[in-house]
Design a protein around this nucleic acid. Structure first.
Lengths: 230, 230
DNA sequence: GCATCGCCTATTGTTGACAATTTACAGTTC
DNA sequence: GAACTGTAAATTGTCAACAATAGGCGATGC
């Protein structure tokens, strides 16, 4: 009855999902630029597969909203307008506030487990601050928040947030160095962690709101107005 | 060619999305039962298309979480446990509370537009209450909430909520008549509408919370415990 | 000069065939 | 009779060829 999952579980995942995960990573890393068309034949060849499985993966990313499909024209990488940034961070606020509440209502063990992982991530962030590795900082930033949401154990909330995290990384990447001073950033996350550990529900909620609103300001202030999206 | 109804093609939307929409509707209507395997060849033939486009549509629904894919075994309709119901309604609460806030901060015109549509939906609900048409009531129930969220204009919030609405309809359907007395249900939605129109932010938030928590209780109380899902 | 028409190429959309895997079942052994 | 093994059927995973569409580009006409 109990299948030997351990060995085959890595390759046991559906192909389309594996390809989609690879493409998502390439998108948030900027290998594919916003607005760029995904050439099916070329990308399929690059990933050592054929157009069939690739197209299935593309549909997943279209459903996520990272790609946009135009009939008979192809799929294109999402271009982020200031309106998009506001949307993304509004949803993030909703999700993270809900996660805060759920975590606070959860057992102390669950909170401690989450805090332990968050501590490690902040530690890693501090290391990369020293060398101003923006890409790494952005990745760890979103890893922090994803871990936070994952602490709730709500699989649907987690799935939703993974897309938001990808979009957030695209925001940061597309604006290059829109980050505030890096030590301040680390401090903000440390603050969130402290409030979670202290069980300060109201304080955590307020801190999350401020943290995200500040990010929106940083991301939109330097940006030319391009709310008009084709 | 064996045209799958030129009606499809004339719409500019991608084929996989059209197929996915049809399948989603069939799933929430119970044409495909929870746990049931989707036979690709059979369903493709039923929809007058081939396995390729169908599989692309299935990937979209897997990404949404309405279907679950097991490698080399196929895709299966989601089976809802009590844990799933709690998850779904927890996320709904997060989304609807965020929508409440966004709407309250929006212009009065935007609120009025939304309220006008909500009024019509409540009117339709009242009609179907007379004949106790549960399926129709469930559809209108979710249409009410979807319209509410759509009032924010946040496309990401809307996309997220569409999946939640589908899952909620599956909850209701799988438990057959888990609804409370229908006139009470209509009254609850009327109450939400009144609070929105009155601009009573705090009252609306509390009413939304109560409304959703009550639904979870109704959906879980009669249910055998089947939290253990493979 | 400029707009329009028609061809042409590149790319996507679709299909059917083929390969690989799982599952069920019958046969065998202890 | 129970457990195991090997075969067979059904289903999914993959691929390459074919069809159809959009956009580019030059020719044509005014």
């Amino acid at each position: 009855m109990a299948a030997p999952e351990g060995l085959f579980v890595l390759e046991g995942r559906p192909t389309a999902q594996l390809i989609a995960d690879q493409l998502r990573e390439q998108i948030v890393q900027g290998t594919f630029r916003p607005g760029q068309q995904i050439n099916e034949s070329a990308v399929a060849a690059q990933l050592r597969t054929s157009r069939g499985p690739l197209r299935e993966a593309l549909q997943r990313l279209c459903q996520e909203g990272l790609l946009i499909s135009h009939r008979n024209r192809g799929v294109f990488v999402l271009e982020l307008s200031t309106a998009d940034i506001k949307e993304i961070y509004a949803v993030r606020e909703a999700v993270e506030l809900a996660a805060s509440n759920t975590l606070m209502d959860a057992g102390q063990d669950q909170i401690n487990d989450t805090c332990r992982v968050l501590k490690e991530i902040i530690g890693d962030m501090a290391k990369h601050v020293a060398v101003s590795d923006w890409q790494a900082i952005a990745r760890l930033d979103m890893q922090f928040h994803t871990t936070f949401v994952a602490g709730t154990g709500n699989t649907r909330l987690i799935r939703i947030y993974e897309t938001l995290a990808a979009e957030s990384r695209m925001c940061i990447l597309s604006l290059e160095v829109a980050y505030p001073r890096l030590d301040v950033l680390v401090q903000e996350h440390q603050n969130l962690l402290d409030l979670l550990e202290a069980g300060d529900r109201k304080g955590l909620q307020q801190a999350v709101k401020r943290h995200l609103q500040k990010a929106v300001e940083d991301l939109t202030v330097t940006r030319q107005d391009n709310e008009i999206t084709a």
